[in-house]
């Protein structure tokens, strides 16, 4: 555990809590892609199956459980409790275009051809692209509420901090996780355009982020 890794985990947690509280307090999930949230719930489910097989640390177990519970609670709020506010019309990204190639890649490139390892690899690849329905929705509607952009900022910052963590670990321990690093770079690249808009429009302006 180093400072980048810890800051990355905290950033990830902050992002998920921001989104949950936004929906809970406003009683609305307007502007939020339910599809992206289902994909993230799927990411955590397929990655954290090792909760049943190995114990790593209390920190590790608690964080995994918190991520799982919050991701399913968010999906519940969107599709059940506040489904009246769900904008299914604009949440029209075809997730099979992500799931099919990601599943295929997980079978081709993994650390071991075992169910848990393939599911872990699937979760790493899926996480890299899971935000695409949300970014697609923002592009389609042309705007995002500032609280939604704060959520996206912390979610992007999380993987960027993990990249710093991997650079640090490579130099200090000689550690290199090829699957996670390559996917992490791809994942972070997806947020670069958003980071630019966030700094130039949300932080310097006020209120909503609207696209040109």
């Amino acid at each position: 555990m180093n400072i980048f890794r810890l800051a990355g985990d905290v950033s990830h947690l902050v992002a998920i809590i921001i989104l949950f509280l936004k929906i809970w307090k406003s009683k609305s999930c307007a502007g939020i892609s339910g599809k992206s949230q289902v994909l993230f719930a799927l990411v955590f489910t397929s990655r954290y199956l090792d909760l049943f097989t190995v114990f790593i640390s209390a920190y590790n177990t608690i964080m995994k459980l918190v991520f799982l519970v919050l991701s399913y609670a968010t999906v519940y709020l969107i599709y059940m409790r506040f489904r009246g506010s769900y904008d299914s019309e604009n949440d029209s990204f075809r997730v099979e275009f992500l799931l099919v190639p990601v599943t295929g890649l997980a079978f081709l490139e993994n650390y071991a051809f075992t169910p848990l390892e393939i599911l872990w690899t699937f979760s790493i690849f899926l996480e890299a692209v899971a935000i695409m329905p949300q970014l697609f929705m923002i592009t389609k509607t042309g705007e995002a509420e500032s609280i939604t952009t704060h959520y996206l900022f912390f979610l992007g910052l999380y993987r960027a901090l993990y990249l710093a963590n991997w650079v640090w670990r490579y130099h200090t321990e000689g550690f290199f996780d090829q699957i996670a690093v390559v996917s992490g770079v791809v994942q972070t690249i997806f947020y670069c355009d958003f980071f630019y808009l966030y700094v130039t429009r949300v932080l310097r302006g006020s209120g909503k982020m609207s696209l040109p």
């Binding site: 890794r5 190995v54 590790n60 964080m63 650390y111 490579y170 550690f175 996780d177 699957i179």
Partner: peptide, 10 residues
């Protein structure tokens, strides 16, 4: 450096 996976990372 061999490619390896760290089970601790989230």
């Amino acid at each position: 450096v061999d490619s390896q996976k760290d089970k601790d990372e989230l």
